[in-house]
Amino acid sequence: MTPDIQKAVAYLKEGDAGQAASFLQDMIDRMPEHATAHVLLAQAREALGEWDRALHAWREAVHLVPTSPVIFRGLERAARKGNPLSHEPAKPEQDALTDIDSLIASLESARIVPRPDAASLPTPDLDDDIDDVASETLATIYESQQRYKEAARIYDVLAERRPGQAAAFRAKATRLRSGETED
């Protein structure tokens, strides 16, 4: 499970559906084809009683994973509840979360197997977004802008990414945090 998804699940389990929904919406804006995110967003919308938006999220999910019974049930449920003729109070079903756990597990484990010729070629990283840009160049720019906290954060990321030079990067981060500068 990706860290983002873990975070969203954590919000949901804590009952903070609002937070989960806005977090997931962000994620979907970045990765519109992330099926798990759509499923969780649908859950969050249900928990908030926003049945129309839940219905929309389930539809997106069905579009991406047309075979999942859990998603299909969700779609039906949201369609029923979203119907203004029914006056039932909105209440997520009991087994929803356990079902969801297994669905997430299966979605996350369903990796697309690359074609053999594609596997033999190095391919650019596509998932990393903003952290791609963590580089020594950026760190020194932040330093020259006197944004030492930002610079230190970049060095931390670099230390994680290049274990060989981790000690040097961490030393720089510490120096920056303690407020010393080169001059």
Partner: peptide, 18 residues
């Protein structure tokens, strides 16, 4: 050509926004 074609192909499958 193989490099560009496969990179495009794989990217199309993952559809990053940026």
């Amino acid at each position: 050509f193989v490099l560009v074609a496969t990179a495009t192909f794989r990217e199309a499958r993952t559809k990053p926004v940026r």
